[in-house]
């Protein structure tokens, strides 16, 4: 049988109103409509979702783990981005 492999899709679920969609796994489906239905059947049987996104796996661009240092370390030294860097006298109250 020379059927091409069924496309792979990544599934993102919003579990509750107010939360962001979170990646929960993948599945195989021939097109977006079937992917959405499959995601519902596989990933929301226990009330885990109020919204589903399905994305073809090959549409995802990911950062290269070997570039972690270059991508993410420079942020670590910029402590002036954090509130604790700044001193505010207690008498002023909460800020």
């Amino acid at each position: 049988m020379a059927t091409p492999n069924t496309p792979l899709w990544e599934v993102f679920i919003r579990s509750r109103n107010g939360l962001a969609h979170k990646h929960c796994g993948s599945l195989h489906a021939s097109d977006a409509t079937m992917a959405l239905q499959a995601a519902r059947d596989i990933y929301t049987r226990r009330g885990e979702g109020v919204s589903i996104w399905v994305v073809p796996s090959n549409a995802i661009t990911a950062s290269d783990p070997s570039e972690k240092g270059m991508m993410f370390e420079p942020a670590e030294s910029k402590i002036y981005r954090h509130p604790t860097f700044y001193e505010v006298p207690e008498e002023v109250g909460h800020m």
């Binding site: 069924t6 599945l27 195989h28 239905q37 499959a38 059947d41 596989i42 049987r45």
Partner: peptide, 11 residues
């Protein structure tokens, strides 16, 4: 015919 369909029919 596919695992995804096992899920759907069972549902």
């Amino acid at each position: 015919p596919a695992l995804e369909e096992d899920m759907a029919l069972a549902n």
